[in-house]
Design a binder for these strands. Structure first.
Length: 470
DNA sequence: GGAACTCGCCAC
DNA sequence: AAACGTGGCGAGTTCC
């Protein structure tokens, strides 16, 4: 059956590389199906209760809004049609009637009403309340979906392999891959609803910085490979120092109350510059993003970053942008010159052939720009490492008659229902598969791979996850 | 009355 | 020359 299916799909043109891709998705599909079947527990009563609380919070915000100047204008114009959830009405009120300046636009060129755009006007009475109302409404609909999709208190999200042009996976009904994590308040609210199967605990094991690693498989940039391989180096720390013109930046102070600023600078360099640049962003936008972070940061020596930058003659956004431009040039022409050359040659090759292949055997065809062409292999390959590991772990658990079983996948992270007494057998085995066995399977892996793990308590919800050492 | 679209927002 | 890659989904809105 398996061979016949494979032949049919290969359309009689078997090439070894494509066979590898077929096998990966064939085995991956089976393992993901096991996870879908297992599903995850959900506390429906809690969801319903939270919805009631959220509805109350939303009503409270709306009552407060009604009493503002903006609210009265809204009422005057729309009457019974007034709807605080209608962005079109909001756009009309703010940018036409109240004549506020629009700082951001939507893709189609209208004045944006997203939270970031509204926050430019958060001094206006009601704006902050409107943003809060929207956040509550969003969380409310998330509970709505979970209640709708559960069957007898179990959610069975789908994990698809047929929807993404980079050959990543996706998830639906519900989308298990975009459950809030970064906003601590919202994370706690939503993940509090999700439980392991009775008697189990949730284990989440993810690859560390995997897309940076997969990049190295393709461009083989020596500086990037050193950053990934040598633990005494740190790319984001180096970039934070260069971007903010500092001599030191100790990552160990991350989250330290004495030096809260260090965390902001490290995270800022990482998110607003390094990853943005990798995805194809450019210095003007990066400078704007970095400029927002810097304001109230206190440096180790007691000076405000704002003053520090002024002392270095980059105290205005305009001057700072020129500085970021120089950092960008250095980033691509010196620090990651080989990566930069690869982007050029890989794209040229695509233009000549009309397609490009991934190391895992997948072929990408279609009209793409350079950013898409150069991002796809990294994104896809990173997921394929996770998927291969996911399938190996699933097979190992079954073969060895473990009670632990698969729960789901979030691109570079696998989640399991972990049977507590199996913890010290299963977790080390997973680490071994993810970081060692995989290097025997794929000989083009040219940098060490690392994993991080989170664990919830036995019969405790997902929001109580805590980092652990394996 | 449903399909298709835009927008906003969540994840990696 | 232009300027952040990949998804899913809900609400509102418009099209047919």
């Amino acid at each position: 059956m398996y061979e016949r299916l494979k032949e049919k799909i290969m359309l009689g043109q078997p090439r070894p590389i494509m066979n590898a891709a077929y096998d990966l998705f064939h085995n991956g599909t089976i393992a993901l199906a096991h996870a879908e079947l297992n599903g995850m527990r959900i506390d429906v009563d809690y969801c319903v209760l939270q919805q009631k609380k959220l509805a109350k919070k939303i009503r409270k915000e709306e009552t407060a809004l009604d009493a503002t100047k903006m609210g009265r204008l809204w009422e005057h114009i729309y009457g019974t049609k007034k709807n605080y959830n209608a962005d079109k009405q909001l756009r009309n009120i703010l940018f036409s009637k109240m004549k506020l300046k629009s700082y951001m636009e939507t893709d189609s060129g209208l004045a944006s009403t997203k939270a970031e755009a509204l926050s430019y006007h958060d001094a206006i009475e009601g704006i902050k309340g409107l943003i809060r109302r929207r956040k509550y409404a969003k969380v409310n609909t998330t509970f709505e979906g979970m209640i709708r999709e559960q069957v007898d208190g179990i959610l069975h999200p789908f994990f698809n392999l047929n929807t993404v042009k980079t050959y990543r996976g996706s998830s639906s009904n519900i989308n298990f891959q975009n459950i809030p994590n970064r906003d601590f308040e919202v994370m706690n609210m939503i993940r509090r609803a999700i439980y392991p199967l009775p008697g189990y605990q949730i284990a989440a094991i993810d690859y560390g910085s995997i897309e940076v690693g997969t990049g190295c498989f393709y461009h083989k940039d020596p500086m990037m490979m050193k950053y990934v391989s040598d633990k005494s180096t740190n790319m984001h720390r180096d970039m934070a120092m260069q971007l903010f013109m500092l001599d030191t930046l100790d990552k160990e102070h991350k989250g330290n109350e004495i030096n809260p600023g260090e965390n902001a600078l490290y995270q800022g360099a990482k998110g607003a510059f390094v990853f943005a640049q990798f995805y194809g962003d450019y210095y003007v936008h990066c400078a704007e993003g970095l400029w927002k972070i810097k304001k109230d940061v206190m440096l180790k020596n007691g000076t405000l970053l704002e003053k520090h930058l002024k002392d270095f003659d980059v105290g205005t956004l305009k001057k700072y942008t020129t500085h970021v431009k120089e950092v960008e040039t250095d980033f691509w022409e010196n620090r990651f010159r080989i990566y930069n050359q690869w982007k050029e040659s890989f794209y040229q090759e695509y233009l000549e052939n009309g397609y490009f292949d991934m190391l895992t055997g997948f072929r990408c065809q279609g009209v793409m720009n350079q950013k898409q062409v150069c991002n796809s292999p990294m994104q896809g390959t990173a997921f394929h490492l996770l998927l291969w590991s996911f399938s190996e772990v699933d097979q190992w658990l079954r073969k060895n008659k473990m009670k632990s079983c698969m729960m789901g996948q979030i691109h570079d992270e696998m989640l399991l229902h972990l049977w507590p007494s199996e913890r010290h057998i299963v977790l080390p085995k997973i680490k071994q598969i993810m970081t060692e066995s995989i290097r025997e399977k794929f000989d083009w892996i040219n940098v060490p791979l690392s994993v991080d793990a989170d664990l919830s308590g036995v019969d405790r919800p997902w929001n109580e996850k805590k980092g652990i050492e394996i």
